[in-house]
């Protein structure tokens, strides 16, 4: 079999295509965007941010990435638990009701 590829959703047509052993490695980054679970959206006020990295450290979903020197939210995956907002030492994050279209 061809190994399932990390960044590609395997395109299996029939039982013949799937690996013999039930194995997979398609990343949830692509395969399972959990942002749709969110009711409240964390919004950062960069003016207040002291770039301490606490929000990045405390996110249970690894949904905050660190770019250069500041946090960037992956709204595609953030579930809106509010931990980052609660733990931010300078109160730079607000949880706002998600407006769904």
């Amino acid at each position: 079999m061809d190994r399932p590829r990390k960044d590609e959703r395997p395109d299996y047509k029939t039982w013949k295509d799937i690996p013999l052993t039930p194995v997979c490695n398609f990343t949830t980054i692509k395969g399972n965007p959990t942002g749709g679970w969110r009711t409240f959206r964390p919004i950062v006020d960069m003016d207040k941010c002291i770039k301490c990295g606490i929000c990045w450290q405390d996110c249970p979903d690894a949904a905050i990435v660190w770019e250069e020197d500041h946090p960037v939210w992956l709204y595609s995956h953030c579930k809106g638990c509010g931990i980052c907002a609660r733990e931010c030492p300078s109160d730079a994050i607000e949880m706002e009701l998600e407006v769904k279209i």
Partner: peptide, 21 residues
């Protein structure tokens, strides 16, 4: 070459196929 073994599979795919295999 990290792989996940035995990950949750739904009735729609591919549990039954693995049993057929």
């Amino acid at each position: 070459e990290p792989l996940s073994f035995g990950t949750l599979a739904f009735p729609s795919s591919w549990y039954m196929e693995w049993r057929y295999k």
